[in-house]
Amino acid sequence: MNAEMSVPARIMELIRAEGLPVGAHLPAQMLADRLRLSRSPVNQALGVLHEKGIVQREPNRGYFLASAISAPAAELAQQLGLDEGGSISAVYFRVAEDRLQGELPDAFSETLLKQRYELTAAQLQALLHRMHQEGWVQKKPGYGWEFSPMLTTPESLLQSYRLRLALEPAALMEPGYHITPEVIARCRAAELHLLHGGIKTDTADQIHDRGVRFHEALVEGSGNPFFIDTIKRVNRVRRLLSYRSMQDRKRYKQHCEQHLAILELLEQGRNEEAAGMLREHLSDTLKNLKKISRILKA
C-alpha cells in the first residue's frame, strides 16, 4: 500500500466540506498548508485524482476541480479505490487510545507497533507518517521513536481551553486585525456542512480539523506571530483528548451556530462583540468538557 494513498481522500473531503465548485483552482501549497502536509504527498495525491477524473491538470496552471464532490469522501474514495487509508485510521485511533490508557511506553520501536497492531511494512510507515505529521511522535536519534509530550489527562485538556480562553478573544482585538472575505466564506461553508448532516457522518478527525481550522483562521487574522504560534502549538498537543471528547456530539450544533455568529460579527467589523462571543463560546465548551469528564477518563 502506498503510504500517501489516504491523502487523495483527505483532499476530496476538504473540497466537499468547503463546497468548492467545478473549475476551482487547487493550489498544491494551499492544500499542503490546510492538511498540514508537505507539498510532495499533496502533488502525488493530485496526480492520482487527475487519473481518476476528479481534478484536471492544466499545463503551467496547475490543478482544477473537474467533478463536483457531493458524496462523503470516504464513500467516494471507496468507489475510486482510494480507501486504503481507512484501515490506517482505525489503527491510528487504537494507538491513540492505548497511549492515553498508558499501555504504550514513552519510547518504542517500529517492530513493537508492527507486531502489536499486525501491520504490513507499508501500513506501519503510513501510520508513523500520520502520527509524526500530527506532532505526537518523533524519531529518536539513531533508532526508534518516542511519543511527544502530550495532553494525556482530562485536567490538561481543560487547562488548554483556559489558555485559549485568555488568548483567542484577545487576538481579535489586535490593532490592524483583518480576516479576508474568502476565509470567512470558507469557514462558513464548513459550519453549514456540519449543520446539514456532517455532525453525524464526519469522522472525529474531520470534525477536529474543522474546529482547528476555524480557530486558527480567527487568530491568524491578528497578524501577531506570538498569538498564531501559541494557538497552533496548543492545537497540536490537544488532539488525542479532543478525539475522545467527540464521543458526545450533541454539543456540536451549538458550536456551529456560535461559530457562524462570530463570523457574521467579524464580517461587519464588530470585533469587540465577536471577541465577547468567542469568549462565551470557549467558556461553554469548557463547561461541556467538565460534564463529559467520564468519557475523558474512560
Rank of each mutant, 00 (worst) to 15 (best):
E273M: 09
V183E: 15
S40P: 02
D248T: 10
G176W: 07
M12T: 04
R61T: 04
I184W: 00
E220Q: 15
S222T: 08
Y92I: 01
A68F: 02
V137M: 02
P154K: 06
L195T: 09
E264L: 11
L241A: 02
E51F: 04
E51N: 07
A171S: 15
S70L: 14
A68C: 01
A185H: 10
G23Q: 09
K250F: 04
A204L: 10
Q133I: 05
K52H: 11
R34V: 06
A32E: 09
R238F: 01
S283A: 11
G85D: 02
P105S: 15
Q258V: 00
I231T: 12
E13V: 00
V48T: 14
E273F: 05
R233L: 14
L192F: 07
P59T: 13
E168Q: 13
I184C: 03
G142V: 09
Y161W: 15
S293P: 00
R239H: 12
L65M: 10
R233T: 13
Q138S: 12
L263F: 09
D229W: 08
H208Q: 10
L82R: 02
E267F: 05
K253F: 05
R270K: 15
R99K: 15
A185E: 13
A166S: 14
A45D: 00
M12F: 03
Q254P: 00
F214W: 07
A261V: 02
V42P: 04
L282A: 07
T285P: 01
E272W: 10
R244F: 03
Q78T: 11
S245Y: 05
T153R: 11
I207A: 05
G142N: 05
T120D: 07
A3Q: 14
Q29A: 14
Q247V: 01
A261M: 05
Y143D: 11
R239K: 13
A185P: 05
V212Q: 11
G47V: 02
E118G: 03
Y92M: 09
R213S: 11
L26W: 03
R270W: 01
D98C: 02
E220V: 03
L46P: 09
E155Q: 15
R294V: 11
M12I: 04
V219F: 06
G197A: 06
G19C: 04
A189H: 08
N60D: 14
E220W: 07
I231F: 04
Y92A: 01
R294T: 09
R239M: 14
E51R: 15
T180A: 14
M277R: 15
M5G: 09
I295Y: 13
G221E: 04
R186K: 13
H259K: 10
E264F: 03
